[in-house]
C-alpha cells in the first residue's frame, strides 16, 4: 500500500507529543526476545524467511559492474546445492549501478533498490537529491533508500526534513521509499522515535535504521523503538509501514531474534518481504551455512559458500 497523495507539512505532527522512550526498559525488552529458543522446524522456517527478506547489498566506492552482476547472480542462485531456497527480496546498490543490476536480474522477481539523496551523508542541496532519485528511478530502481538530513533534524528543523522526505517520495513515483534515519547519529531513542513518526507521516513506505557506514548501525533496541512507532502509526491510521534494520546483522542467530521481535511486536501481517527487510551483505551466507547444517548435521567451512 503506497501512499498516492504526497503529504504536505501541515501533516507534520507535534513531535513533542510523541511517547517518551525509556532506554533501560527498551534494552530489557530487547534482551528478552533473545531468550526465545527457536529450534527445529521453526528455525528452518525462520531461516528461509530471513533469506527472502534480505536486501543483498553492496555499497562500496570500489564497486564495479562485474561485482554488481555477480551479486545479482548470487541473489538469484543463493546456494543451488540446497533445494527449495527462496531468492532474496532485493539487490541494493548505488544509483550508477542500477542499470547494471536491472539487466543482470532480468525477469527474476527480485527488486533493485538504490540508495539516493547523497548517501550516506545526505550532505547535498535538495535539488541534487531529487535529481539523483529521479535518475535512479529512470534507470529502473524499484525501491529508493534515502537518508534524512540528520543535521536539520538534530537542529529541530522538523518541517524541513519532512518536506524533503515528501519531495523525495514524489520523485520516487511508483518506486517504494525507504527512509534511513541513521540512528547511530541521532543519539537518543527518543529522537529515533520522533524521526520514525516524522518519516511515516511524510510518506515513507519503509523506515530503515542505518546506512551501514556509521557505528552503531542496527541494534535490537533501536529496531524495537521503530517497530513500536510503526505499530502506533498503524493503530492511528491503519496504514502499514515496513521496517528495515540494516548494518551489523551478520549472523543467522541474531536475525532470528529480529524476527522474534517483529512477530511479538507487530504480528504476522508484517512477516513478509513486503513489510520487512534485512539490509545485509554477509548475513545470507551465515543463514545458508545454518541451513546446510540443518540438512546434513555438520557445519561446512565458509569456503563452500560463494561470497558474491
Amino acid at each position: 500500500m503506497t501512499l498516492t497523495v504526497v503529504p504536505d507539512s501541515s501533516l507534520l505532527p507535534d513531535l513533542s507529543k510523541v511517547s517518551q522512550v525509556d532506554e533501560v526498559g527498551v534494552n530489557e525488552r530487547a534482551a528478552r526476545f533473545q531468550t526465545r529458543s527457536i529450534k527445529k522446524e521453526s528455525k528452518i522456517e525462520a531461516l528461509h524467511m530471513i533469506l527472502s527478506m534480505i536486501d543483498l547489498t553492496t555499497l562500496e566506492g570500489q564497486d564495479t559492474s562485474g561485482k554488481v552482476s555477480q551479486l545479482c547472480q548470487k541473489a538469484i542462485h543463493l546456494h543451488n546445492t540446497l533445494p527449495n531456497l527462496p531468492h532474496v527480496a532485493a539487490v541494493c546498490v548505488y544509483p550508477t549501478m542500477v542499470g547494471v543490476a536491472k539487466k543482470a536480474l532480468g525477469d527474476h522477481k527480485i527488486n533493485v533498490a538504490s540508495v539516493a539523496t547523497a548517501f550516506p551523508s545526505g550532505m547535498a542541496p535538495r535539488h541534487i537529491k531529487l535529481e539523483e532519485t529521479r535518475l535512479a528511478v529512470e534507470e529502473g530502481a524499484d525501491e529508493i533508500d534515502m537518508v534524512i538530513s540528520r543535521g536539520a533534524f538534530l537542529q529541530g528543523e522538523y518541517g524541513l526534513v519532512f518536506d524533503e522526505i515528501a519531495a523525495v517520495k514524489e520523485a520516487c513515483g511508483e518506486a517504494h521509499l525507504k527512509v534511513i534515519l541513521e540512528t547511530g547519529e541521532l543519539g537518543t531513542l527518543d529522537r529515533v522515535r520522533r524521526a520514525s513518526v516524522l518519516a511515516m507521516h511524510a510518506g515513507a513506505d519503509f523506515i530503515k535504521t542505518s546506512t551501514g557506514k556509521i557505528q552503531p548501525a542496527a541494534t535490537l533496541p533501536v529496531t524495537l523503538v521503530m517497530l513500536q512507532a510503526i505499530r502506533d502509526y498503524f493503530y492511528d491510521t491503519g496504514r502499514m509501514v515496513g521496517m528495515k534494520p540494516a548494518g551489523g546483522i551478520s549472523t543467522a542467530k541474531l536475525a532470528v531474534h529480529y524476527l522474534v521481535m517483529l512477530r511479538e511486536t507487530l504480528g504476522n501481517a508484517w512477516m513478509t518481504p513486503e513489510w520487512y527487510r534485512f539490509g545485509a551483505s554477509s548475513l545470507a551466507n551465515d543463514v545458508l551455512m545454518q541451513l546446510q547444517k540443518q540438512a546434513t548435521g555438520v557445519y561446512q567451512s565458509a569456503d563452500y559458500f560463494s561470497k558474491d
Partner: peptide, 18 residues
C-alpha cells in the same frame, strides 16, 4: 475500540523447546 488490529495468531510458531 480500534479497528486497526494486529494479528498474533497463526503464522510462524515457535516449536517446543523443553
Amino acid at each position: 475500540d480500534n479497528q486497526n488490529k494486529l494479528a498474533f495468531d497463526g503464522g510462524w510458531q515457535y516449536a517446543p523447546a523443553p
